[in-house]
Computed example of a mutant assay.
Amino acid sequence: MKISHLLVAACLGTLSLAATAQWQWIDGNGKKVFSDQGPPMSVPEKNIVRRPGGTASTQAPAPSQSQLPSQPATTAASAALPRASASAGLPRPSGVDRDLEERTRRAEDADKARQAAEAERVARAKADNCARARQGRSTFDSGIRIARINANGEREIMDDTARAAESQRLQSIIDSECS
């Protein structure tokens, strides 16, 4: 029995070696693909995550024609073109990219709407401040007696200097808010 267990464990160990001979890359939709065959030529080098033997891909430049295996020049050039054009940064239509662009556009639109609402709120507050300052100024310019409550809770009638100071303060508010 112990030998059979040992044989089963050895078989399982050798089967796991076959699993290490796999390619891993990111396809055009942004999903990871695992395969025992190499990726198609349309997959750029930067998207190849792992090669057989457990070696991770690095940013290696595309092979030149002198480094390619012995093939006719036209075949070598045509084989190098898809990888070179794909890694040149040309936009690829992808569902992930469209979703990301849509979310980004919605976020920008929401930000613009928030800014417009904030600007409108500030404009309303400024118009309200302007109207109140003009009303207060007209009250002070009318000449009627105005009383204020002091810190002790007593009622005081404003004298001419206090009226002039308050009128000047209201005029500065009108100048800044009613432009």
Rank of each mutant, 00 (worst) to 15 (best):
S78F: 08
A86N: 06
Q37Y: 13
L68C: 12
N47C: 07
V96H: 14
Q59H: 12
A110S: 07
R134P: 02
A119L: 06
R105I: 01
K32N: 13
A113G: 02
T75D: 13
P63S: 06
R134C: 02
Q59R: 14
P82C: 03
P44I: 04
R145H: 09
T14Y: 14
S70Y: 07
N129V: 06
S70A: 14
R137Y: 02
R145M: 08
A10F: 10
S4D: 11
V8F: 15
D128P: 01
V33I: 10
P40S: 07
S66N: 12
L81D: 11
R92D: 12
D109K: 11
T75L: 10
L170G: 01
I149M: 08
S85Q: 14
K2C: 07
P72V: 08
A133K: 00
S167T: 07
R92G: 09
V96R: 15
Q37V: 14
S176F: 00
A117N: 05
G143F: 00
Q65C: 13
S35I: 01
I157C: 01
R51C: 04
G54S: 03
A76M: 05
R105H: 13
A113W: 04
A125S: 08
F140T: 06
Q71F: 13
R163A: 00
Q22V: 15
T161R: 11
I26R: 08
A86S: 09
L90H: 12
K126F: 00
F34Y: 13
E154P: 03
D111R: 14
M1D: 10
R134D: 01
I149H: 04
